[in-house]
């Protein structure tokens, strides 16, 4: 499988990364080179092989449903590019 300019634009959009036409031209051969190389995995017979989910067998722990943390609004907001009235602020999303 190989990607063209249109596909790269679509991937960039899904990735929420703005790219110029020029950058797109640049990414097409680069991504194709990498994708062409990883395609060799198709040679491997994986019938009856389970995809890996954990490298070291480990049971997912559960903890008591108790509040253990909180009351840190100012710390949570401390690095926000814009915070207003105790909230993260973003450009208007509803007209």
């Amino acid at each position: 499988m190989s990607v063209d300019k249109e596909t790269v634009q679509k991937i960039a959009n899904l990735s929420r990364i703005a790219i110029t036409d020029e950058e797109c031209e640049h990414f097409v051969p680069e991504l194709n080179q990498i994708l062409g190389w990883v395609e060799q995995l198709g040679e491997v017979d994986c019938s009856n092989v389970e995809p890996m989910t954990a490298v070291i067998p480990n049971k997912l722990r559960l903890r008591a449903d108790e509040v253990t943390d909180g009351d840190k609004r100012d710390k949570v907001l401390a690095n926000a590019p814009v915070a207003e009235h105790g909230f993260f602020a973003v450009p208007k999303v509803i007209e």
């Binding site: 499988m1 991937i11 995809p51």
Partner: peptide
């Protein structure tokens, strides 16, 4: 950016099994 885009592509609809699931099987 390159890696985010590769990752987005191999996880996207229609390609997930061919790339990502196959890679996780090979990892096994």
């Amino acid at each position: 950016k390159r890696r985010i885009m590769i990752g987005t592509y191999v996880l996207s609809a229609g390609y997930y099994d061919a790339y990502y699931t196959q890679a996780q099987k090979v990892r096994t």
